[in-house]
């Protein structure tokens, strides 16, 4: 049995590696889901009813089932049911599958926030743009988009903070993120076994990172305070 001070450098090193994977999943999800959510929100607002129904159905399914189940289905379904293991077995395959599940899941949540944001902008903004001879595209990008962003920053911030912690769900398909890294010392790894504190210690990483994000998102909110 090693002492805490002997364990710490080893655990710290391993958790850092795990946290890097957590961060990768976090950023890929944001970069993918923020724009995809906008496209989905257009689908759920289109006047073409079949597309609207289909989009709203998909959003209902994705928001109505646990992300953990979605991860399992996306990762295992191709191999076990279709006998076509598209993801491969390695860490890269697991990471890719996790990205697909997270991006799609978060895009659906974002789409509803976008929809609320777009629909909360008064009709008068559209009408003012139209009578000034602006196109629908110009009205969206030049007039409504920034107003919409201002309105959705608080709810999106909420989702972003949740996402930091949701990345731990990828543990279910054995993605080697920080929870996986911490848990390894419980089972036994690098001469340390039966240690639960590394798992507890992962909370510090989450807390520090969400702290940084809270400050950054707060700054963004402040920067949009120049108009009302």
């Amino acid at each position: 049995m090693t002492t805490f001070s002997e364990q710490f450098p080893i655990v710290f090193q391993a958790l850092n590696v795990g946290f890097l994977q957590t961060l990768k999943l976090f950023f890929v999800t944001l970069i993918g889901a923020l724009p995809l959510g906008l496209i989905i929100s257009f689908g759920s607002m289109t006047k073409f009813k079949p597309v609207q129904w289909l989009t709203r159905f998909v959003v209902w399914v994705v928001r109505g089932t646990p992300l953990m189940i979605q991860l399992l289905i996306i990762y295992y379904f191709p191999g076990l049911v279709l006998h076509n293991p598209v993801w491969g077995g390695g860490e890269d395959g697991r990471f890719f599958a996790a990205c697909v599940a997270f991006v799609f899941n978060y895009a659906c949540y974002f789409s509803e926030i976008y929809r609320g944001g777009i629909q909360s902008i008064p009709k008068g903004q559209d009408e003012a743009g139209l009578v000034l001879g602006m196109t629908r595209g110009q009205i969206f990008f030049r007039v409504k988009l920034l107003q919409m962003i201002k309105r959705i920053v608080p709810p999106i911030s909420n989702e972003v903070i949740t996402l930091v912690k949701d990345t731990s769900l990828a543990r279910i398909i054995a993605l080697q993120e920080i929870i996986w890294a911490g848990q390894a010392f419980l089972k036994g790894s690098q001469g340390i076994s039966g240690a639960i504190w590394p798992l507890f210690f992962t909370a510090v990483y989450y807390l520090a990172f969400t702290g940084v994000l809270t400050v950054l998102l707060g700054k963004l909110e402040k920067r949009l305070e120049f108009f009302r």
Binding site: P122, Q125, R228
Partner: peptide, 26 residues
């Protein structure tokens, strides 16, 4: 539409633009 201008009861200015930018945008 450009034959007509319309001034609304509730102004409907674009809030993220200054007065000058509102006048210039279109």
């Amino acid at each position: 539409r450009l034959h007509f201008g319309l001034v609304f009861q509730n102004f409907n200015l674009f809030p993220q633009y200054t007065a000058l930018q509102n006048v210039m945008l279109a």
